[in-house]
């Protein structure tokens, strides 16, 4: 800076590390994201009575209401927790069965009839855009409060995810053995059973377990709208402002999720 002549000369001879265009693009994108972020923050905090600072300052004081958790209700929440797990088991099992034809239909390498493939794909994509809670709300409206609407919601919700993941697995299989079986006179069913199933069975099981984990979490949410299980109990306690009880339920959910994920991860590791 002490020698302005020199620095101008530098600018002419030394190329910048990144091309000007890239630099400009990155800067523009950065500021657009920043502006959007500030706008979102302003919009989402404008309803707050005491403003952002007041709320954040208040946060820990309010959160302290949840402590100490009331462990005396453990006995009472044991049953709804088991109910949640059962909902997830039933829903995952049924989804795993229904998903097989859907996954085959939406795998490009097996379903060579294009219109069928596209229709299944679009159907599954639409299915995946519907939030699980909306499904639960609709089914609760239809069947009344209870676990049955919850199970239905979970089945449909997990079907979208599972069918997509499994169809991707099918698309990545080695097609050579199928050719060999065809060359030896096997029929289509035998080809699928001997060359396709052994290749996808481990991934299939692993993905089903993964979706089971997702379903455990989702079934907690579903309870909040009346679809049975631990979520229903949690919702009641929150509505009664009974925060220590709610905290116990949250801790039980947390531990259950961790245990199930641990078992599921171990099983999946053993499979693959």
């Amino acid at each position: 800076m002490t020698n302005p002549k020199n620095s101008i000369a530098d600018k002419k001879t030394i190329p910048s590390i990144y091309p000007t265009k890239t630099k400009l693009q990155v800067t523009v994108i950065f500021f657009v994201i920043l502006a959007l972020y500030l706008f979102s923050m302003k919009k989402t905090t404008e309803d707050m009575v005491n403003g952002l600072d007041g709320a954040l300052g208040n946060m820990f004081r309010v959160l302290a209401k949840f402590f100490p958790p009331n462990f005396e209700i453990l006995k009472a929440i044991w049953n709804p927790m088991l109910e949640t797990i059962q909902m997830a088991i039933i829903a995952t099992t049924i989804a795993a069965i229904i998903t097989i034809p859907l996954a085959i239909l939406s795998a490009r390498n097996v379903t060579t009839f294009k219109p069928l493939y596209y229709i299944t794909r679009i159907f599954l994509n639409l299915l995946r855009t519907i939030p699980d809670v909306v499904l639960a709300v609709v089914f609760v409206g239809l069947f009344g409060i209870g676990i049955f609407p919850g199970i239905l919601a979970l089945i449909i919700f997990s079907l979208g995810i599972l069918a997509k993941l499994i169809s991707e697995t099918i698309e990545s299989v080695d097609m050579n053995p199928l050719e060999a079986m065809r060359a030896s006179g096997a029929n289509t069913l035998q080809m699928i059973w001997y060359a396709l199933v052994p290749q996808i069975a481990p991934q299939f099981t692993s993905l089903v377990l993964y979706v089971f984990e997702i379903n455990i979490r989702a079934s907690v949410i579903l309870g909040l709208v009346g679809a049975g299980g631990i979520g229903l109990t949690l919702n009641q306690q929150i509505n009664f402002y009974n925060y220590p009880n709610a905290m116990t339920i949250i801790i039980v959910i947390f531990i259950t999720v961790i245990i199930i994920e641990y078992i599921s991860t171990k099983l999946r590791e053993a499979l693959l």
Binding site: N176, P177, A180, A195
Partner: peptide
């Protein structure tokens, strides 16, 4: 076949 085409699993 050139690539044996066995079911590897």
């Amino acid at each position: 076949f050139q690539n044996y085409n066995l079911v590897k699993r």
